[in-house]
Deep mutational scan, measured.
Amino acid sequence: YYKILGVDKNASEDEIKKAYRKRALMHHPDRHSGASAEVQKEEEKKFKEVGEAFTILSDPKKKTRYD
């Protein structure tokens, strides 16, 4: 999950949140509406992965379990 968000394992809550926003905007489906179906599908997959990574890393209990 750290790799997906592009943050270090010791990243602060704020750094995780900023990285999530950056990656979410980058891969958001609306940004790729004019792209081919294949690209849209890949970006949607990445967008979901970013969301999942943020869900785990932003919750202290889940993050501890993950680490």
Score class of each variant (00 low, 15 high):
24 A>M: 11
50 V>K: 04
38 E>P: 01
30 D>V: 09
20 Y>G: 07
17 K>L: 13
14 D>K: 08
12 S>C: 07
57 L>C: 03
30 D>Q: 08
6 G>V: 00
36 S>T: 12
46 K>G: 02
29 P>F: 02
35 A>F: 05
20 Y>H: 00
54 F>V: 10
8 D>F: 01
59 D>Q: 00
3 K>Y: 08
10 N>G: 11
51 G>A: 15
37 A>S: 08
2 Y>A: 01
50 V>L: 14
34 G>C: 10
17 K>I: 07
13 E>L: 15
54 F>M: 06
51 G>F: 14
17 K>G: 05
22 K>Y: 09
13 E>S: 12
42 E>S: 12
25 L>S: 13
27 H>F: 03
46 K>W: 01
52 E>T: 09
55 T>N: 14
48 K>P: 01
34 G>R: 07
34 G>V: 01
7 V>R: 00
8 D>G: 08
8 D>K: 05
22 K>E: 15
49 E>L: 12
20 Y>P: 05
62 K>C: 08
48 K>S: 10
2 Y>N: 13
57 L>Q: 06
12 S>G: 05
61 K>M: 10
56 I>N: 12
8 D>L: 00
66 Y>Q: 15
27 H>G: 04
62 K>F: 06
47 F>S: 07
21 R>K: 13
41 K>P: 01
14 D>T: 08
22 K>S: 14
4 I>R: 05
36 S>K: 13
25 L>D: 15
8 D>Y: 00
38 E>I: 06
56 I>L: 08
31 R>W: 05
41 K>L: 07
53 A>L: 01
42 E>F: 13
34 G>M: 10
49 E>S: 09
50 V>G: 03
29 P>G: 03
23 R>E: 09
29 P>M: 04
7 V>C: 06
21 R>F: 11
46 K>H: 06
24 A>T: 11
9 K>T: 14
36 S>E: 09
37 A>L: 13
26 M>T: 08
48 K>I: 05
31 R>M: 14
23 R>S: 12
25 L>H: 10
39 V>D: 02
63 K>Y: 02
47 F>Q: 05
9 K>M: 13
31 R>K: 10
36 S>N: 11
55 T>D: 14
22 K>M: 11
63 K>N: 03
44 E>Q: 12
60 P>W: 06
13 E>P: 15
66 Y>P: 15
67 D>P: 05
21 R>W: 13
58 S>A: 08
65 R>E: 15
56 I>F: 11
32 H>W: 14
53 A>R: 03
54 F>A: 10
54 F>D: 10
50 V>H: 02
60 P>K: 12
16 I>H: 06
2 Y>I: 14
39 V>H: 06
28 H>T: 04
50 V>E: 06
35 A>T: 08
45 K>Q: 15
19 A>C: 02
5 L>H: 04
18 K>L: 09
55 T>M: 14
44 E>T: 08
4 I>C: 09
31 R>N: 12
29 P>Y: 07
9 K>A: 11
60 P>E: 07
1 Y>W: 02
13 E>F: 13
56 I>Q: 11
58 S>Q: 05
7 V>E: 12
52 E>Y: 01
35 A>E: 15
30 D>E: 12
33 S>W: 09
30 D>W: 01
18 K>C: 11
53 A>V: 01
5 L>S: 09
60 P>F: 07
65 R>C: 15
38 E>T: 12
3 K>Q: 14
27 H>L: 04
63 K>C: 03
3 K>T: 13
24 A>Q: 10
23 R>G: 10
44 E>V: 06
49 E>P: 04
41 K>M: 11
62 K>E: 15
3 K>S: 13
42 E>W: 03
46 K>C: 03
48 K>D: 07
14 D>F: 07
54 F>Q: 07
33 S>M: 11
57 L>W: 01
5 L>Y: 04
20 Y>C: 06
21 R>D: 14
59 D>S: 05
43 E>K: 04
51 G>Y: 14
22 K>A: 13
37 A>P: 12
49 E>K: 06
39 V>E: 09
16 I>A: 02
54 F>K: 12
15 E>D: 13
52 E>W: 00
52 E>S: 03
37 A>W: 08
10 N>S: 09
43 E>C: 02
17 K>C: 10
49 E>R: 03
29 P>Q: 06
4 I>A: 09
21 R>Q: 15
13 E>T: 13
9 K>P: 12
50 V>N: 06
18 K>T: 09
4 I>L: 08
7 V>M: 03
32 H>D: 01
35 A>W: 01
20 Y>T: 07
61 K>P: 09
41 K>R: 14
6 G>A: 03
24 A>P: 02
26 M>H: 04
48 K>M: 10
22 K>I: 13
39 V>F: 08
26 M>L: 11
43 E>D: 01
48 K>H: 05
66 Y>C: 10
17 K>A: 13
62 K>H: 08
16 I>M: 07
2 Y>E: 06
53 A>F: 00
39 V>M: 07
45 K>Y: 02
51 G>D: 11
2 Y>S: 07
46 K>F: 00
49 E>C: 02
57 L>P: 05
28 H>C: 08
33 S>L: 13
5 L>W: 01
55 T>P: 00
45 K>H: 04
34 G>S: 11
35 A>M: 10
21 R>V: 14
45 K>E: 09
59 D>H: 00
49 E>T: 05
42 E>D: 07
20 Y>Q: 12
29 P>N: 05
28 H>E: 09
7 V>P: 04
21 R>T: 14
46 K>Y: 02
60 P>Q: 10
32 H>E: 07
52 E>I: 02
34 G>W: 04
1 Y>A: 10
19 A>G: 08
46 K>I: 01
5 L>Q: 08
42 E>V: 12
50 V>Y: 03
35 A>L: 06
38 E>D: 11
39 V>R: 13
57 L>D: 06
1 Y>C: 00
11 A>F: 08
50 V>R: 03
14 D>M: 09
66 Y>L: 12
62 K>V: 08
14 D>E: 14
40 Q>D: 03
56 I>W: 13
44 E>H: 08
59 D>I: 00
27 H>M: 04
26 M>Q: 14
3 K>P: 01
21 R>N: 15
60 P>H: 09
4 I>S: 09
63 K>H: 14
6 G>W: 00
46 K>M: 01
28 H>L: 02
12 S>M: 02
47 F>A: 09
35 A>V: 10
29 P>A: 07
63 K>I: 05
18 K>Q: 12
48 K>W: 01
65 R>Y: 05
28 H>W: 03
28 H>A: 03
26 M>I: 13
58 S>W: 00
62 K>D: 09
9 K>W: 03
40 Q>G: 08
64 T>V: 13
47 F>V: 02
38 E>V: 08
3 K>N: 14
42 E>M: 13
25 L>T: 13
17 K>T: 09
20 Y>R: 05
30 D>G: 07
26 M>N: 03
56 I>H: 08
35 A>D: 05
6 G>Q: 07
19 A>W: 01
3 K>L: 04
16 I>G: 06
45 K>R: 15
40 Q>I: 07
2 Y>H: 03
62 K>G: 08
50 V>F: 03
4 I>N: 07
58 S>P: 01
31 R>H: 04
57 L>I: 00
64 T>M: 13
26 M>K: 15
26 M>S: 08
55 T>L: 04
60 P>V: 07
8 D>N: 12
1 Y>E: 00
28 H>R: 06
44 E>K: 12
11 A>W: 00
1 Y>M: 13
18 K>S: 13
49 E>I: 02
49 E>Y: 00
47 F>K: 14
21 R>A: 15
50 V>S: 06
34 G>F: 02
29 P>D: 07
60 P>L: 11
20 Y>V: 07
42 E>C: 08
30 D>H: 05
39 V>P: 04
27 H>R: 04
27 H>N: 04
58 S>R: 00
52 E>G: 07
15 E>T: 07
31 R>L: 09
24 A>G: 06
3 K>C: 01
32 H>K: 05
35 A>G: 06
5 L>D: 01
6 G>P: 02
36 S>Y: 01
57 L>N: 06
45 K>I: 11
58 S>G: 11
65 R>D: 15
8 D>I: 00
62 K>T: 14
56 I>V: 15
59 D>A: 01
7 V>N: 01
16 I>T: 05
4 I>F: 03
10 N>I: 02
9 K>G: 07
14 D>Q: 10
55 T>G: 12
43 E>H: 15
38 E>C: 09
41 K>G: 04
10 N>H: 13
35 A>I: 02
64 T>L: 15
10 N>V: 04
53 A>N: 02
60 P>T: 07
12 S>P: 06
64 T>I: 13
51 G>S: 15
67 D>I: 00
24 A>F: 10
59 D>C: 03
44 E>S: 12
66 Y>T: 13
6 G>H: 02
48 K>L: 09
54 F>R: 07
18 K>W: 04
9 K>E: 13
52 E>N: 09
54 F>G: 11
17 K>H: 12
36 S>Q: 08
38 E>L: 08
58 S>I: 05
64 T>C: 11
52 E>V: 05
10 N>E: 10
1 Y>V: 10
59 D>K: 09
27 H>K: 07
56 I>G: 10
4 I>T: 09
31 R>F: 06
45 K>D: 05
66 Y>V: 15
58 S>D: 04
36 S>A: 08
35 A>N: 07
33 S>K: 13
14 D>A: 14
15 E>R: 00
40 Q>F: 01
18 K>Y: 09
50 V>P: 05
37 A>R: 13
28 H>Q: 01
48 K>G: 06
50 V>D: 03
